[in-house]
C-alpha cells in the first residue's frame, strides 16, 4: 500500500476543489447575470474538459507548461522552477480538468433562484451584499457543496492528465490512481485491490453525500 500516493491524491484533490470554489462561483455568477452573444461558446468551452480525452488535454497542458512556452516560461521566470512534472503544475491542470464539475452545479443552482427574490429583498431595504449572503447564498448552498464534492472526487480519480504532465515522481506527482496502474503492471494485484477499494470507498461516500444534499434543497415557492 502506497500511503504517500494516497497523501498526494488527497492533497491534490483538496487544494484543487478549494481553489475551484471562488473560480466556480465567479464564473457561474458572471454567466448567470450577464447576457451576451457568445455565451453559449463560453459555456461550451467550460464543458470541454468533460468530453476531451484526458490524454489530449494533458498533452496540450504539457506543451504549454514547457519552459519554452508562455505559461511555462512565465512560471519559470517567476519561481525559477519548472511547471511540468511538479505538484504545482498538477494542481493547475486539475483546476482546468475539474472546472466543469465546479461551474455547472453552481450555475444550475443560481438559475433556480428567481430574480424577484432578489428584488423583493432590495425592496425590503436589504442591501445587495446582505441579499447575497442572506438570500442567495443559502439557496445555492446545495449547489456549492455538490460542486465541491464532485470536483474533489473527479480530481482524486484523474489519471490521464496526471500521467501526461505529472509523470510518476513519488511524493510529488504520483497519485493513487498512478500507483494502482503501477501495481497492476508489476502484477501486484493485492496492492492494486486495496488501493482500488480505498478509492471506491471514498467515491461511494461522496456521491451519497451529493444525493442527500440535493434532497435538502428548499422548494422555491412559485
Amino acid at each position: 500500500m502506497d500511503w504517500q500516493a494516497l497523501y498526494v491524491s488527497l492533497k491534490l484533490a483538496t487544494v484543487t476543489s478549494l481553489s475551484l470554489f471562488p473560480i466556480g462561483m465567479a464564473l457561474a455568477y458572471w454567466l448567470n447575470r450577464t447576457q451576451f452573444k457568445g455565451r453559449y461558446f463560453v459555456e461550451a468551452l467550460l464543458t470541454l474538459p468533460l468530453v476531451l480525452p484526458p490524454t489530449v488535454l494533458g498533452y496540450f497542458l504539457l506543451v504549454s507548461m514547457d519552459s519554452q512556452h508562455v505559461l511555462g516560461g512565465f512560471f519559470a521566470q517567476l519561481t525559477g522552477q519548472q511547471l511540468a512534472f511538479s505538484f504545482t503544475g498538477l494542481w493547475l491542470a486539475s483546476i482546468i480538468y475539474s472546472l466543469p464539475f465546479a461551474v455547472q452545479p453552481i450555475l444550475r443552482a443560481m438559475e433556480q433562484v428567481p430574480d424577484n427574490l432578489r428584488e423583493a429583498a432590495w425592496c425590503s431595504g436589504i442591501s445587495r451584499w446582505k441579499t447575497f449572503l442572506r438570500i442567495e447564498m443559502p439557496l445555492i448552498w446545495p449547489g456549492i457543496m455538490t460542486a465541491w464534492i464532485l470536483s474533489f472526487c473527479h480530481t482524486l480519480g484523474e489519471f490521464g492528465v496526471v500521467l501526461m504532465i505529472g509523470g510518476n515522481i513519488a511524493g510529488e506527482t504520483r497519485t493513487l490512481s498512478i500507483a494502482i496502474y503501477d501495481s497492476v503492471i508489476a502484477f501486484e494485484h493485492q496492492q492494486a485491490t486495496v488501493m482500488s477499494l480505498i478509492l471506491l470507498g471514498i467515491s461511494v461516500v461522496t456521491v451519497t453525500l451529493v444525493y442527500s444534499l440535493n434532497r435538502l434543497k428548499y422548494r422555491v415557492v412559485r
Partner: peptide
C-alpha cells in the same frame, strides 16, 4: 434612488417569499 432608499413596500404577483 436605489430600491433600498425608496420607502416602498411591494407584494409581487407570486409573492416572492424567501423559501428558506
Amino acid at each position: 434612488l436605489s430600491p433600498q432608499k425608496r420607502r416602498v413596500g411591494i407584494v409581487f404577483q407570486d409573492y416572492a417569499l424567501f423559501p428558506h
